[in-house]
Amino acid sequence: MSTVYNLKREVEKPIRLTGGHRLCAGCSTGVVVSGVLRALDREDRAVVVNATSCLQVSTFMYPYTAYMDSYIHSAFENSAATCSGVEAAYNALKRRGKVEGTVKFITFAGDGGTYDIGFQSLSGAMERGHDMVYVCYDNEAYMNTGIQRSSSTPRFARTTTTPVGSVGQGKKQNKKDLTEILVAHNIPYVAQTAPIGNFRDLHSKSYKAIYTEGPCFLNVLSPCPRGWDYPMAMLAEIIKLAVDTCVWPLYEVEEGVWRLSYMPKKKLPVEDFLRPQGRFRHMFRQGNEWMIEEAQSYVDQKWERLLEHSGA
């Protein structure tokens, strides 16, 4: 791969996730999956592994698959173990001369399938050191079942299980920092990214994750127009705001070395990210100013820590 990223050249590669799948308009998941798979070298094959999710039901509804590569879905909570199994089979068959060429193993799961129910399976697979990439497309709630809170849902967000009422004010707890938990697994490569701008960040991190030997993890912010309640056309802008407010900083940890991937020219206030989203609407009601203040102070604190880690 040339070290200079060229979007035009990348999109000229044969497509690996075909159109016609059933993901919603304004959903980022298809963009994320295409973006990650595009990083595969042309001649390499992949086996795509998928947890039960919006992505799964939308891209492989019998008898149609949207994937040009082999694909397996087994259940909700076991996509990392499933990927381990495919990789183990590859090693065994390769050793016995029964499989040819390079095959890469890439898992996609939502935040419910990663932060929550699939967490044990993920942790186990990372510890065992399989040569695989695990991609969490993080849309911050159980969207496939209709917007229920997960441990990835940020504080104050309204979901159908953290509704806003006369007493309830959305989710009470902060978002679990899964990326840092994966860093603590001491695996070769962990990165936090998003499909932003010309996709350079997503592409280069995907490439590194796919072509670094051993278990690699990507956490990709993946807005959901239904769950986040923003106008469909705003997808790219919402992602940009998440990054420029430092709600979702872009960074990577390679062999234990932290590196900030993107320093906003001007760090925007968190409320710029919150305002366009219906899930945070109640935070802007009179008397709820404290929520925005607390959300800001939480983001600032996390951002400072990240700057410290990455020596930026």
Partner: peptide, 21 residues
Amino acid sequence: VAVESEHSSMSVCIAAQAAGA
């Protein structure tokens, strides 16, 4: 593959068998 649960051992078997093993 020494996994972290029986759920994962069966998941590994399913995936491996589907992969051709």
